[in-house]
Every structure is written in C-alpha cells, then in structure tokens.
C-alpha cells in the first residue's frame, strides 16, 4: 500500500481499487489495492506506481484511459471524464474491461 498523503484538511484518504481479472497478473493475484488520491485518476496512477507493468493495460499512450477500460465509482458508472471524478475516504473504484465475445 502506498503511504497516505492526506487530503487538503490533512486527513488520510483511502480508496479501494478493485482490479479486473486480467489486471491481477500484475499484482500477484491481488484483487483489491488500497491507495490514496483525490480523484479517480490520481488513485489509478498510484496503483500503476505500485504495479508499473499494469500501465499499458489501463492507460492509452496519450495518458487517457484505454478504450476497453470501464471505471465504476461506488458501483456507479464514472463515465465520462472518469479520471477527473473526485473521491473521498472509503470510496471504492472498480476497474473492469469491456467484453465483446458471444
């Protein structure tokens, strides 16, 4: 877990990030990572800082989310502008992948 930096009022902000199955290869099978951050984007960047090999699976080369990635904040779709969504202590992010098979 990345050390908490605290929010503007000095409180620690802990956000749970649930990782899609395909991302767990980068976390040794770990399903959930707890990080800090004030936005969804900051939280995801902190996940990637902890598990750098995950970066290209979540982000496109331009730093935006990869098209196949879907983000849910507290089980609610964060689309559009997912990365800018503010988060608060105790929030939960799900990183999932679009499916196309049938």
């Amino acid at each position: 877990m990345i050390p908490m930096e605290g929010d503007e009022e000095g409180r620690e902000v802990a956000v749970k990030v649930n990782l899609h199955l395909t991302l767990r290869q980068f976390t040794n099978g770990q399903e959930m990572v707890e990080v800090d951050g004030k936005t969804v984007g900051e939280c995801l960047k902190n996940v990637v800082r902890e598990f750098p090999a995950m970066e290209s699976s979540i982000f496109a080369k331009n730093g935006k989310l990869a098209n196949v990635v879907e983000i849910y904040l507290n089980l609610q779709s964060a689309y559009p502008n997912e990365l800018a969504r503010p988060v608060k202590d105790g929030d939960e992010i799900h990183v999932t992948m679009m499916l196309a098979g049938g």
């Binding site: 199955l21 992948m97 679009m98 499916l99 196309a100 098979g101 049938g102």
Partner: peptide, 8 residues
C-alpha cells in the same frame, strides 16, 4: 449480453 472466459 457478452462473455469472455469465465466472465459475462
């Protein structure tokens, strides 16, 4: 509906 592996 959509699937992949054990997921849907």
């Amino acid at each position: 509906g959509a699937v992949n592996g054990f997921e849907g």
